[in-house]
């Protein structure tokens, strides 16, 4: 929250500086902001709807069940897949991870879940393709998936 406020304050200051230095340029910048936003709006809305549907079907309880105590390799695999296909905001994901940990999930499963959640975005791949093309988007996500799982195994080995 504090960070978001700081982010707003910095942006507002920059906007003010821009406005005093060159009104025309600032107008062009804001027009540009709006156009970029509108350009990507269909994908944004679709992503939000998809998150809503998926999070309803995959409730925190379901996730806990899949990644909980003694889930082992099966748990690591499901953690990675769930992390890749869902898009859970950090303010929900970290408390969830902490709850999972308290209910007995291992560090490996949790790290696999968090890392894939952050780096791999199956739902947002249409957006990524729009900017980066199919090959790069698929390659980046596949690499991120492999490295996220590797990370998780190392983290598990160190912390457990």
């Amino acid at each position: 929250m504090t960070f978001t406020l700081t982010f707003y304050a910095v942006t507002a200051s920059l906007l003010a500086i821009s406005f005093f230095r060159d009104r025309e340029k600032t107008k062009a910048a804001l027009l540009k902001s709006w156009r970029s936003f509108e350009n990507i709006l269909p994908q944004f809305l679709s992503v939000l709807m998809l998150i809503g549907i998926m999070l309803t079907l995959l409730s925190p309880e379901t996730i806990s069940l899949l990644l909980g105590k003694d889930s082992g390799w099966y748990g690591v695999a499901s953690a990675s897949v769930i992390g890749s296909v869902t898009l859970i905001p950090g303010f929900i994901a970290f408390p969830l991870a902490s709850a999972l940990h308290k209910s007995g999930a291992g560090y490996t499963q949790i790290a696999a879940f968090i890392s894939t959640l952050m780096m791999v975005g199956v739902i947002t791949i249409p957006m990524e393709i729009k900017f980066f093309g199919r090959k790069n988007a698929v390659l980046r996500n596949s690499l991120a998936f492999i490295f996220a799982v590797t990370d998780a195994v190392i983290i598990g080995a160190v912390l457990e």
Binding site: Y8, T11, L15, A28, K32, L48, I51, G52, P89
Partner: peptide, 26 residues
């Protein structure tokens, strides 16, 4: 959930896109 996420998104996106515009122009 979609509504909650949308509010969350709308609260963070204005500065992101304003910065994008400023970055492009300056």
């Amino acid at each position: 959930l979609t509504g909650v996420n949308m509010l969350e998104m709308l609260s963070i996106l204005p500065p992101v896109f304003i910065l994008l515009g400023l970055l492009d122009v300056w």
